[in-house]
Structures are given as structure tokens and as C-alpha cells.
Design a protein around this nucleic acid. Structure first.
Ligand code: ZN
Ligand code: ZN
Ligand code: ZN
Ligand code: ZN
Lengths: 136, 136
DNA sequence: TATTGACTCTATAGTAACTACAGAGTTTAA
DNA sequence: TTAAACTCTGTAGTTACTATAGAGTCAATA
């Protein structure tokens, strides 16, 4: 059994993050020491690494909670897992599309200034202001 | 002079958002009515639309605050504006790269499940668990 | 004129996933 | 024994809003 500091080292998560996951019901220490310190075993390490891997895929804590509970009840159907992953993929792709569009606009904006000028004649601010007048 | 509800309609921002921008020092009503209602003029409308346009470029409120203050002092140099926009572009591009990478992993993960199975044999969960064992 | 409904005010809490304390108690090693 | 290092709980801060509650204001109608 290890204490929270060692779990943090092993997993690469911070102590505060581990406590946070406990509050969010993703990972609970089943035991406490005499002095009330959280004690973790090997299964806890694996569970935390699972969580960490899912987070690196940008899955939300709610989604991970769901995956963990499916993982804990092996007779449930795959469909729920599939659907979540698919929705998540869609969301990521939408965000990529948005950011790509955004990037174009920002680059055009950046080109409209040649530096070394005062803001008075700055193409960037001029453009931002003109966009306003058009909308208005 | 118009009240906040009309400014909200004109700009497409919510009333709460406009009040929020005031708290964040981006847009202040210079006048209040006898009954303490915020009163806005044409310059305020333009300022809010400027803010809205910048937000659509994903600039943070802090960045917009900076742009507004540069806009208000026309003799300042362009360099600050340029640098901010460039950093913002870099950040957006980094995020796009991250998400693209993420998307690949998620798609591979999705392919590892053929649905209609119980979670016990689900390729997705299997893969997620294996990734853990490797790291561990 | 009284009242109703729409509008506005301030202040506070919630969102997501942490991060950063403060103040107290515990353990370990010198 | 005492100091350093660790851990505990609880609370507040981060971003850009959103959503209330409870009170006050205003315009139009009965
Ligand atoms: Zn998701
Ligand atoms: Zn410029
Ligand atoms: Zn930025
Ligand atoms: Zn499956």
C-alpha cells in the first residue's frame, strides 16, 4: 500500500488532482492509515493510469466515469461505449474545423500590419474596427 | 440613449454578457437614468461590436482589453498588437495540431470495436486498459 | 389611479478540471 | 526531541459566461 505522494509520482498526476478525482468519484482509496492517510494498492494505480490515458484523449471526467462503470460491469453492451467515442470524435472534428477557419482569419489580420507604425494607422486595428462598422 | 435590453438586441449579446463585460472593464455605461438604468450611446454600440468580433476570433477578454486600450491611445506602437496576434495564432495552431493527433487516436480506438458485443470483449476498453499496462 | 407586466438592478452561485492556498495533524530521520 | 517533509480538510481562484433570487423601475391598461 502506498500513500498519495507516491501514487502521484508513479502516475505523474499531482496530489491535488488525485484528491480531485476522488471528490469526482473516479478513484477512491479503499483504506486509510492510522493517521488518516489515504492508502492505495496496485489496482488503484492502474485505475488512475486508465483515467490519465482517457484524459489525454480529452475525454471529460463524466465520460471517464461512464467508461469506468462499464469496465466494472463486463456484461453491459458495447453500444454505449461506441456512441460516446463517436460523439467525442465528432466534437473534436468540429473544433478542428472551427479553429482552422479562425486561423485563416487571424493570419489575414496579421498581414494587414507592417509594424513600426503607430497604432493610429495600424491595419489590424483598422480592420477590426471596419468589421464593426459593417456589422453595425 | 438606449437601455441594456436594446443594446443586447442590437449587438446579439445577452444582457448578462454585457453586464459581465462591464465588470471586466471592457465596456462601461457612462450614464445612468433616474431609475439607475444603464444608458448607452452609439460609441458604446460600436465598442461592444468590436468586442464581439474579437471574441469570435477567440481572443481572451484580457487581450481585448489590451486592444481597446491601444485603440484608445493612437500614438502607441503597433508592435504590441502584432505580438499578441502572433502569439494567439501560435496558440491556435498548437491546439489544431494537438486535436488532429487526438483525432487519429480516437479513430483508431473506435475501429477496435464491432459493436453487438458485451463490454467484456470490447476492443475499445481492451485497448484503453492495455495502454495502461504498458505505461505501468 | 391602481395595477399589471416587462424591464432592470445587485449580488450570488454554478459550469469544467483543476490549482493553490491556509491551518492543522502525522510521520520520519537526524 | 525536534525539525522537515508529508498529509489532511476546506475554501477560493481560474475563464467567460449563464442562471438564478429578490428588489426596484417604468409604461400601458382597466
Ligand atoms: Zn467527449
Ligand atoms: Zn499595426
Ligand atoms: Zn490569445
Ligand atoms: Zn466494444
Amino acid at each position: 500500500m502506498i500513500k498519495i505522494g507516491e501514487l502521484a509520482k508513479i502516475s505523474g498526476c499531482s496530489v491535488e488532482t488525485i484528491r480531485h478525482y476522488e471528490k469526482e468519484q473516479l478513484l477512491a482509496a479503499k483504506l486509510r492509515s492510522d493517521g488518516n492517510f489515504r492508502l492505495y494498492d496496485h489496482a488503484d494505480i492502474e485505475r488512475l493510469l486508465f483515467i490519465k490515458h482517457c484524459r489525454s484523449l480529452d475525454l471529460s471526467l463524466a465520460e471517464i466515469r461512464q467508461l469506468l462503470s462499464l469496465n466494472d460491469s463486463p456484461m453491459s453492451q458495447c453500444d454505449d461505449v461506441n456512441q460516446m467515442i463517436e460523439q467525442h470524435i465528432e466534437q473534436v472534428e468540429r473544433r478542428i474545423a472551427d479553429l482552422t477557419q479562425l486561423n485563416k482569419q487571424l493570419k489575414a489580420l496579421r498581414l494587414s500590419c507592417n509594424s513600426k507604425r503607430t497604432v493610429e494607422h495600424c491595419g489590424i486595428l483598422k480592420q477590426l474596427n471596419e468589421a464593426v462598422s459593417q456589422t453595425n
